[in-house]
Design a binder for these strands. Structure first.
Ligand SMILES: [Mn+2]
Ligand SMILES: [Mn+2]
Ligand SMILES: [Zn+2]
Ligand SMILES: [Zn+2]
Lengths: 156, 156
DNA sequence: ATTGTTATTGTAAATTAATTGCAATAAGAA
DNA sequence: TTCTTATTGCAATTAATTTACAATAACAAT
């Protein structure tokens, strides 16, 4: 399987742009963890690896990483965008706990059918979709119930 | 059916907060249009109605409107959040054109089943979900193809 | 109705994410 | 190696959202 770096190099050449060690470092860091990230987090991770890359360079790289199919926007939370690597990852949806932030990923087989149906019905050329569920994970749900019970007892 | 204003008044009382004409104006404006909106847009709409409400008051009202179940975040686009009224609206998904911004709404019956299945499988108390599809609408898709043809001709 | 408490407002300043101008650097084609 | 110009780091800017603060007003209790 072609590596993310190779995919990016091909994209860069195709677009007549220039590849740089900075961009490769960014890609390597993203694909060394394979998890959701935001710009600040990625910047700090790279700083920990002794990288001196400016945050502006990360911001400037992101549209290219999206265009080349390496990453995509995952969700907007806490006032900023979060991204995730998608190259080499199966299309998946998210189940997110609004209490502790835990994210469960899962593949929803039904989605392809829905996309096909919608494309026909609304004459859309559908390129992407995002399916996110939010609620409380088992732990947080239990914690809340316990808390409620405490409150109730206090009131008695 | 209970009006959005009544729902909000009940919520406000329940929370020991105070209702204000400003908040009611905001709710009235949102539910006079029943469409997606962002803060700036809503602010301008209200200014057109000769309302002098400060933008900060809209920002401060939004969490209450969400908490009371009147509106929810719809999507993040063009660098800021967009909201939509949900009270009195059926749960729906979005099909959004990334070229012209057109939004098609539709109800996806399958979602309830998926929610039930996930809740059981992952022991989540699922409160909400967001299903958005993005791509090109028929018109924009055609326009793009025409454009491509022009480009191709120019190259010949 | 009047009063008292304090939540809410408008204004301006602050904060935060993201973008951009600029001069120095360096990628990569020639 | 040379040349062109895309990319970088840095600092300044823009834009969305939040917040401090003093004035106002909601509404519960007189
Ligand atoms: Mn994911
Ligand atoms: Mn909608
Ligand atoms: Zn949780
Ligand atoms: Zn369109």
């Amino acid at each position: 399987m072609i590596s993310p770096l190779e995919v990016f190099r091909t994209y860069i050449k195709e677009k007549g742009l220039r590849n740089t060690p900075e961009r490769e470092t960014i890609i390597r860091e993203i694909f060394s963890v394979h998890d959701h990230f935001d710009v600040d987090e990625l910047f700090l991770r790279m700083r920990d690896q002794k990288s001196k890359i400016a945050k502006a360079s990360i911001y400037r790289a992101i549209p290219l990483l999206i265009e080349s199919g390496l990453i995509k926007e995952a969700f907007f939370e806490d006032g900023h965008l979060h991204y995730e690597p998608i190259y080499g990852h199966s299309r998946h949806c998210h189940l997110r706990c609004i209490c502790c932030g835990k994210v469960v990923e899962f593949v929803e087989e039904e989605m392809d059918n829905i996309v096909d149906r919608l494309a026909k019905e609304y004459h859309f050329n559908i390129l992407d979709h995002r399916l996110d569920f939010t609620g409380y994970c088992a732990e947080c749900n239990n914690k809340m119930n316990d808390q409620d019970n405490v409150d109730t007892k206090e009131l008695l």
